[in-house]
Write a protein that binds this DNA or RNA. Structure first.
Lengths: 246, 246
DNA sequence: TCACATTTGTCCGTATGTATC
DNA sequence: AGATACATACGGACAAATGTG
């Protein structure tokens, strides 16, 4: 927590809880509140902002859903600044896809378009660090599989690392969004080791092609890989009952 | 509001307000609660869910921020189901871009990549309805300008209509995200009629090229258009104080 | 113009649950 | 096991906004 006592300013216009969420957001943007730091307790905040605890709590709900804070109960608990808002945006993306009744086919088409571009840039721009990270990722995935653990997380990370290697963080965010949506769909089906194994193999070959700067081979592999993932998902039933993220 | 009285189920596990937000979300996904419909008052909901009004309000804050409901005070007010969650996701996208310190250049590069793809598909797939909508959009923009009104909203809509013409709603969502981010940046500079006028002219010519199916011309125009928009934005100072969306 | 009803917005006090020491 | 410091939740109250008669 910052040492200044007056970084929180009492409330004026609009709804009070919006002001509170807005003020705390700004403090995060400005770097005055940093990831990992703990905010004062709700009682304390209520005193500083000169509002009731209910108002503070509604403001905190907004910040929590926006991914700016996480809340822990119990002794030593409280609200803490988080370091990324990506997960929460992913959840909202999933909601939107549902409401707009997006098909897996449409999502895969866009995914392929974006990953094609990413791969093209990655072949040109990937440096040693990127290659090393991709390599380690594949090793980790293989290790998981050997322990009879699904390597889904590692396999998703491969595509995020590719996006990073393309040297544009907007692409990383968009890939993350699409992957969250896919993982959401995946969560509705039983684990399938064969799929995971196949994905790792594709990743391995794609990385080889990147290192060799064999653009045609890399593209073809990517295409096959993503189409196969799509095929796994295509048979899924639509069930609005399951797993609504908050 | 649905006629059944028992669509709301009393609360069990996790945090109560999360359960409430989750239940209402599911009702929207299932189509039991439809856009425009009004939820019972907070008091009423508290009774049905068998929780306090404070708990209901925290649940509503989540749904409001997620874009599922909007809230109006006063007589005849209450909470109403909204028809899209897109704007709120856009706001979260802007937050993420800020936290990740994304540059306008990076955003424009990705925008161009995506709109190139969209334009390519639109040239092939746009039907009469799409063309008509694009035409009307341009007329509306010109009318705005003649009345000395900025045509920013209409100009943004042109790109959404293009995405629609590409016949893939995921692209519509991604374009919307990027446009919200751009409009956020635009809000930090004084209105510029010359920019708006130029954009409309580009849109007009792009539409002509689409109708003629002149791919090369359309692409070149798009490229120039988006680069010009970027140039307008590039000189902007970064000010974390201004306009934090809630 | 003026009460009036409805509903959100806000406050206070209090009690319970929970995780750590 | 007991004390502590939190978030979570409840109940009752009043203020403010907004439309109606």
């Amino acid at each position: 927590m910052a040492k200044q006592k007056d970084i929180f300013i009492p409330i004026r216009g609009q709804r009070a809880f919006e002001e509170i969420a807005s003020q705390i957001k700004k403090l995060v943007f400005k770097g005055i509140l940093k990831p990992g730091e703990r905010l004062p307790s709700e009682m304390d905040l209520a005193g500083r902002f000169n509002v009731s605890r209910q108002t503070i709590r509604e403001g905190l709900r907004i910040l929590e859903l926006s991914g700016f804070i996480k809340v822990q109960k119990g002794y030593g608990g409280g609200t803490f600044i988080k370091d990324t808002t990506l997960n929460k945006m992913g959840d909202l993306f999933v909601d939107t896809l549902r409401l707009e009744k997006i098909t897996i086919e449409d999502l895969t088409v866009v995914r392929l378009e974006n990953e094609r571009i990413i791969l093209n840039y990655a072949i040109d721009l990937a440096d040693e660090k990127d290659i090393k990270a991709l390599h380690e990722n594949i090793l980790r995935a293989k290790a998981d599989l050997k322990k009879n653990k699904m390597a889904t997380a590692a396999n998703f990370e491969f595509h995020k690392l590719l996006a990073k290697a393309s040297k544009n963080n907007v692409r990383v965010i968009l890939v993350e969004l699409i992957l969250v949506a896919l993982s959401h769909m995946l969560s509705r089906r039983p684990p399938n080791f064969e799929t995971t194994r196949s994905a790792i193999e594709y990743h391995d070959k794609i990385l080889e092609a990147i290192i060799k700067k064999d653009r045609a081979a890399a593209m073809a592999l990517l295409e096959d890989h993503l189409k196969e993932v799509e095929h796994q998902l295509r048979t899924l039933p639509y069930d609005p009952e399951i797993s609504v993220a908050i």
